[in-house]
Amino acid sequence: MNTHMKQNLWGYAFIGPFVIGFLAFTIIPIISSLYFSFTSYDLFNPPRWIGLENFEKMFTSDPRYLHSLRITFIYVFVGVPLRLGFALLVAMLLNTASRAVGLYRTMYYLPSLIGGSVAVAIMWRNIFGDEGIVNLALLSMGIDPIRWFGDPTAALWMLIFLSVWQFGSSMLIFLAGLKSIPQSYYEAASVDGASFFQKFFNITIPMLSPVILFNAIMQTIAAFMTFVPAFIISKGTGGPLDGTLLYSLYLFKQGFEFFHMGYASAMAWVMLIIIAILTSLIFLSSKYWVHYESEGGK
């Protein structure tokens, strides 16, 4: 055995666990779910091939599916920009040199670490409860309390707020991006008498655009797959009036409550296609607004 092969063997030994896990728990399930998506499968009886019937049903005779798709789109297209905007705002605040910046960074990042957890979703229920802090604040401003869990629109907004609150990971990436913008640009602009907003739109945004692109894509994908908050906040129902029935939640209900595994698999594949289309649209649009320093400021 020559040295080259020996090195390769070591390599295989080390990637072995990952490859085995990847095959057993990712590739094989993906392939079987593709197969199930063309079948009617209730877990008890062997899957029965029905061709495209599942996909047809989704778009022609399942109003609940279309509804769930609609509110998921609202959730993504309202939630992601809000979250990115908020992350950028906080990142810029933290970027102004302060002695305790490390502490603040950690503090603002915390919600993202615990945000997807069950505990936070339960806490959210209390915050927005009848006597929760949000309604008390509204009351003190003279606004009538809102039944956050009783009104379908308000309930969806509550989910959006929860996602905006978990801005930490995008914020950290923005912060790193902000730090890499040469200070000299701002100095030169100041000498020319540029205002804060002029600096923001003509220096910060273009210089940060690759980072914005990255964050936008990652957050869009993550937002589409949101499950835990909707599940906990609606106590697993997607209510009120299906107001929080996000795509993954409906998929879960179809699969594990109604045992329509074939239909649920088909839904998962449609979600994959939707995410792929959206991601490529964002990529395609990027040549109009993303500015790469290395390409000579194209």
Partner: peptide, 10 residues
């Protein structure tokens, strides 16, 4: 109770 009242119960 109205359904939104019931939904609000923790």
């Amino acid at each position: 109770p109205t359904p939104d009242f019931l939904a609000q119960l923790a």
